[in-house]
């Protein structure tokens, strides 16, 4: 009985563990995209571009890069 209890405890902690890891990944992805897009937006504002080139390039490339990182980090296990 004691053993099954500790097993359950371990199981819960493992679940929370993976929840924590994936939420950290999601945060990182989100933050990267937001930061890059904001940087692009500011660059466009500074250069007074008609077409928001930097916003587009940086947001799309940051999405691609963070997706690449995400896939790499979940497949490395």
């Amino acid at each position: 009985m004691d053993e099954s209890k500790s097993d359950k405890w371990k199981e819960t902690s493992r679940r929370t563990n993976s929840y924590a890891r994936y939420s950290a990944l999601a945060f990182q992805m989100l933050g990267t995209i937001v930061l890059f897009t904001y940087g692009g937006y500011k660059l466009d504002e500074w250069q007074q571009n008609k077409i928001p080139v930097w916003t587009l390039v940086l947001s799309l490339s940051s999405i691609a890069a963070s997706l690449y990182m995400f896939i790499r980090s979940i497949t490395k296990e």
């Binding site: 945060f27 990182q28 933050g31 990267t32 930061l35 490339s61 691609a64 963070s66 690449y68 990182m69």
Partner: peptide, 14 residues
């Protein structure tokens, strides 16, 4: 060129 900034951003994102 794109991954290094992403990694550096990641350092601060954590």
């Amino acid at each position: 060129p794109i991954m290094i900034p992403v990694e550096i951003v990641g350092v601060f994102m954590k």
